[in-house]
């Protein structure tokens, strides 16, 4: 019994016409099932020479920084408005003046900076001095044209701070080394290395919520309360200009 012409044509159609399409659909189904596997990898491989370089990454980063600065400005404005409502001390940037560092002794018996502006420019004893990153110290004395800054690291320097994460207060005491000592007021400060240390938001003497440093080590066994070593954010060794928060 021979094969009929209809049957022969069906086989040809099946193998030469339908099967490749079926295979293609199956392959695409696999791609769909694997969330684009193969396609995306191939695209990545082929387009690698055209990926954005460091210049484009910097543009994006500068855009992100600009966005964050804008947000920060808005938050500071909100903060000023709320502090005004609460009748707390102002921490605005409007009362800040820039001053050049004309003498610098961050190590030694006296750890101080000498600024190129003084009483004639509105600087007074006790004003806060800030560098890039945070608080550097306070004005210890002024002359008509200069001001002397007692660094946070200087022996005798004492500034009230708190840890925003745990909301615990402490006293940042200068002990001569580059890392001042944080004396907690509570027996259980719940502080861990890496915690940010800042000025208390209720402070009326210094700019509120100003970053100061990061906790490096915590001595839980110290008496009467735990102690911590704080790494300052603003390094006086590398700062040529500072900002003074005048009151």
């Amino acid at each position: 019994m021979g094969v009929s012409p209809w049957q022969a044509s069906f086989r040809w159609w099946r193998w030469r016409g339908v099967l490749p399409w079926l295979l293609l659909v199956g392959a695409l189904g696999l791609v769909r099932w694997s969330k684009g596997s193969g396609f995306a990898d191939a695209y990545a491989l082929l387009s690698r020479p055209f990926w954005p370089g460091s210049a484009q990454r910097e543009w994006i980063q500068s855009g992100i920084q600009l966005e964050q600065q804008s947000k920060l400005r808005l938050l500071e404005q909100d903060n000023q408005r709320l502090r005004g409502l609460l009748a707390l001390g102002q921490a605005s940037g409007s009362g800040r003046i820039s001053a050049a560092v004309i003498s610098r002794t961050p190590q030694g018996w006296w750890q101080q900076l000498e600024l190129g502006k003084g009483r004639l420019h509105g600087i007074a004893q006790g004003d806060a001095v800030m560098g890039p990153g945070g608080l550097l110290g306070r004005i210890q004395s002024v002359t008509p044209a200069t001001a002397r800054v007692q660094l946070l690291t200087a022996p005798g320097s004492r500034v009230g701070v708190w840890i925003p994460r745990t909301k615990r207060h402490g006293l940042l005491v200068g002990v001569g080394t580059s890392r001042p000592q944080l004396e907690f007021l509570d027996k259980n400060p719940y502080a861990v290395p890496g915690d940010l240390v800042s000025i208390s938001p209720a402070s009326t003497l210094l700019p509120s919520s100003l970053p100061v440093g990061v906790i490096q080590t915590v001595d839980d066994r110290a008496v009467p309360a735990p102690l911590a070593a704080v790494q300052l954010i603003a390094a006086p060794e590398a700062i040529d200009w500072v900002q003074v928060q005048i009151r």
Binding site: V175, G176, T177, Q181
Partner: peptide, 8 residues
């Protein structure tokens, strides 16, 4: 802080 002052 006497011990700290010693090292400094």
């Amino acid at each position: 802080s006497v011990s700290w002052l010693h090292s400094w």
